[in-house]
Nucleic acid binder design. Structure first.
Length: 423
RNA sequence: GGAGAGAUGGCAGAGCGGUCUAAUGCGGCGGUCUUGAAAACCGUUGACCCAAAAGGUCCGGGGGUUCGAAUCCCUCUCUCUCCGCCA
């Protein structure tokens, strides 16, 4: 949720920034400001009357104590008149507050100055590439063939158990996934992130806090009996750890990491281009989240980007870093870097990580604040990134490392898994 | 699933219709004393709305009774205890 004061300070800039994000209703900015003016006016009027009621009520108490019953009764009548006058004002005020809030919540975050213009993924800017694309033998095949050859992931049985897009990992496949999770968590904790294992379902307040509601409601699995949402990413429970809290400056930055399965309905996005592990309803991911002093959030963002780059380098996968254009960024983000790895057999780049600075957009919803050196409470900045999402990493590891002898895995995961898969 | 108890400021905890602008303790901050520290003593210390002053709101959430609610009533959520079931 945007901070009202930011919009009020410079409505023109807010409208420009929203346009960069391809937001269709920039006039909402003006509506929000009008509603806020209305709210202030009503608040003042209501407070003035309330003040009179409070004073009169106190007098009644004192008159009663002195036994001046008649005077007290007269005062009571006075208060009743005030209350009658207050009622419609109070109703109007709460109605205005609600409308204001409902509109404010519809505004996406403003993109930061570094965000390039553009509407579609084609407009994203490739910042750099790393690693080397492998030369595969002519016999090389995509991962959906390799998983059958080695009998490590079974989509047919997954579909039988649950439905399409649910993978059943088996034998070495199950172990490879577990090994990667373990490696990623170790890599993150070694860099100073505290490990968490959160609940995999969240309540409505948590889903709202990180911005999944109301924006992505249809993308989450929902349990109506208990009003729980299956998490689409551990970002949701982990960031909500500090919801409604005021942190001390010396506790910053907060750096957290968590593994979780991620559940996504992916409604409408299944076409013929999404095969095998490229897009599934349940996947494993290790996430990093930071809560930092606003003055330092862009340094933290750079640090997270480097951290993920180091991790990808250790996996010896060819990758590239993109800065997303305004039109391709998520609702809540102020700036996003995507990491893609090159899937050599599919000859495609696959997104494996997304690193974002949300600035105060999430923390404003969650009221995550800190006391600054002057003792004032200020909103923190929240950031997160995947490190990493498993399925596409597994797809690339299989495809890019296939050979006549089998699949040779990178050194970094030998101690977690072994050196590879043999024919 | 059954029965009961509870939810108050950073923490502990009193208050159970009208000086609650919430006692007290701990913690935090400032000071006195001290070469310095500790101890002791004194002072101070919640959040939110409002440009600010004035004013207002907040004692788990929501609703009600009343001139007046932390306090009474309804309801929801959560926590604890006991019983049952269970990985």
């Amino acid at each position: 949720m945007l901070q009202l004061q930011v919009i009020r300070q410079n409505p023109e800039l807010a409208r420009e920034k929203l346009a960069l994000k391809q937001f269709a209703e920039p006039q909402l900015v003006d509506l929000v400001i009008t509603l806020d003016d209305e709210r202030k006016k009503l608040q003042l009027e209501a407070d003035t009357i309330q003040s009179k009621i409070n004073a009169a009520s106190k007098e009644i108490g004192q008159l009663m104590a002195k036994g001046q019953k008649e005077e007290a009764e007269a005062k009571k009548k006075e208060v009743t008149a005030f209350k009658t006058a207050l009622q419609p004002l109070a109703d109007k005020l709460s109605e205005t507050e609600k409308t204001l809030y409902d509109k404010l919540v519809l505004l996406p975050n403003l993109p930061s100055d570094q965000v390039p213009a553009g509407k579609t993924p084609a407009d994203n800017v490739v910042l750099r590439e790393g690693g080397a694309k492998p030369q595969l033998p002519a016999s090389a095949v995509p991962h959906w063939d390799l998983i059958k050859k080695y009998d490590i992931i079974d989509f047919e049985t997954g579909a039988k158990i649950t439905g399409s897009g649910f993978a059943l990992f088996k034998g070495k496949g199950a172990k490879l996934q577990r090994a990667l999770i373990q490696y990623f968590l170790d890599f993150n904790t070694a860099a100073g992130y505290t490990e968490y294992h959160p609940p995999f379902m969240v309540n409505e307040a948590s889903a709202f806090g990180t911005g999944q509601l109301p924006d992505k409601e249809g993308q989450m699995y929902y349990m109506p009996e208990d009003k729980f949402y299956m998490i689409p990413t551990s970002e949701v429970p982990v960031t909500n750890i500090y919801r409604d809290e005021i942190l001390k400056e010396e506790d910053l930055p907060i750096r957290m990491t968590a593994y979780s399965p991620c559940f996504r309905r992916e409604a409408g996005s299944f076409g013929k281009d999404v095969r095998g592990l490229n897009r599934v309803h349940q996947f494993e991911k290790v996430e990093i989240v930071q809560l930092v002093d606003p003055a330092k959030s862009y340094d933290a963002l750079d640090e997270m980007v480097l951290h993920i780059e180091r991790l990808l380098n250790s996996l010896e996968l060819p990758y590239r870093v993109l800065r997303l254009c305004g039109g391709d960024m998520s609702f809540a983000s102020a700036i996003t870097y995507d990491f893609e790895v090159y899937s050599a057999a599919q000859e495609k780049w696959l997104e494996v990580s997304s690193v974002s600075n949300f600035e105060t957009f999430q923390t404003n919803r969650m009221k995550i604040r800190f006391k600054d050196s002057e003792g004032k409470s200020k909103l923190l900045h929240s950031l997160n990134g995947s490190s990493l999402a498993l399925p596409r990493i597994i797809a690339c590891l299989l495809e890019n490392n296939q050979s006549a002898e089998g699949i040779k895995l990178p050194e970094a995961i030998h101690k977690y898994f072994g050196s590879g898969l043999v024919n």
